[in-house]
Simulated assay, not measured.
Amino acid sequence: MADDRAQRIARFIEPLRVRPGSTVDLAADFDPLYKADLTKEEGVALLAEGVEVLAEYQARLAAQDSRGVLLCLQAMDAAGKDGTIRHVMSGVNPQGVRVSSFKVPSEEELDHDYLWRYQCRLPRRGEIGIFNRSHYEEVLVVRVHPEYLRRQRLPGESRDPGVWERRYREINDWERHLADNGFSVVKVFLNLSKEEQRRRFLSRIDLPEKNWKFSTADVRERRYWDAYQRAYSDVLSATSTEWAPWYVVPADRKWFARICAAAVLGHALMEIDPQYPTVGEKAREDLMTARRALELEAPVVRSEDDSEKRRK
């Protein structure tokens, strides 16, 4: 990574990275209010720079057409996943980005293994794919709500107490398979505090233009806050790998969360370092032939004297 920006970004996101093999206690190890001594004004400028970096490298990724990137966004309700996607990807070509959101699985999806529906929505080479919630729901919400596991129609031996450790291994192996085939897996957890979630829920209730965002189910799910924190701690500990590390992004300040998400994705693209294809000698000759033909089609430019004579 010759680009100086890559080194600055790597230093910036290092405190957010979950070291592979480490044991995470989410509440103790990561502060949702962390902001790296930045002001909001400085943050606005940094985000603009990050968006430019993404636009530049995404264009090169699409042109090279041999690698792809999958960004997995996980968070508690109201952490800002939609806003993060909207702001971070604001400068890229939408033709090169595919966003997939995963809700309750359909009957068809339940008839397949739990990774099938995610496999079907992976990005193509040259694309950035974004999972707004991801395959990690299968070891988070499904773990917090065991009744969802029963709906997956698994045989008895697949529902034993070792199911979560087995799924961690399967997910790590799947992501390793993707990495080995040219698809970088970038994993971001937007780390929201319980108090900030409460304030955002109140804002959704109090502001008419935000009412549509609120569901009473969100409040019911909030009752499981501690269970989710334990589940996330286990997921971060078990599935942050050298080939697909987790980044825990402080989410209590939306502006800082967006900077961090842009930096993490930008860093992944810079590590790939995609290049515009170069053409061979024969292709270069064809280009020059085409150029000469186009030049011959140029309109004749007449002088002002000629134009004046024609008017007379």
Rank of each mutant, 00 (worst) to 15 (best):
D3L: 02
D4H: 02
A6W: 08
F12Q: 03
I13M: 04
D25R: 13
A28C: 14
E41W: 00
V53Q: 10
A55T: 11
R60L: 14
D65W: 03
G68H: 04
L73N: 11
M76W: 13
I85Y: 00
V88F: 08
G96C: 06
G96Q: 08
S101I: 00
F102A: 06
K103M: 09
D113N: 12
Y118H: 14
Q119R: 12
P123S: 10
I128S: 00
I128C: 04
G129K: 02
N132A: 06
R133M: 04
V139G: 07
V141P: 05
R143V: 06
H145I: 05
Y148H: 04
Y148M: 13
R153D: 14
P155W: 14
P155F: 12
R159F: 01
P161E: 08
V163I: 15
E165M: 08
E175Q: 07
E175V: 02
H177I: 14
N181L: 15
K187N: 09
F189I: 03
S193I: 03
E195V: 09
E195C: 02
R200P: 07
I205W: 07
K213N: 10
D218Q: 13
R220Y: 12
Y224M: 14
D226P: 04
Y228P: 02
Y228S: 02
Q229T: 15
L236P: 06
S237L: 07
T241F: 09
W243E: 14
W255K: 01
R258I: 03
A262I: 03
V264C: 11
L265S: 04
H267P: 05
L269R: 00
P274W: 02
P274E: 01
Q275D: 11
Q275C: 05
Q275E: 13
Y276E: 13
A283E: 15
R284F: 09
E285L: 09
P299F: 04
P299E: 05
E304L: 15
E308M: 09
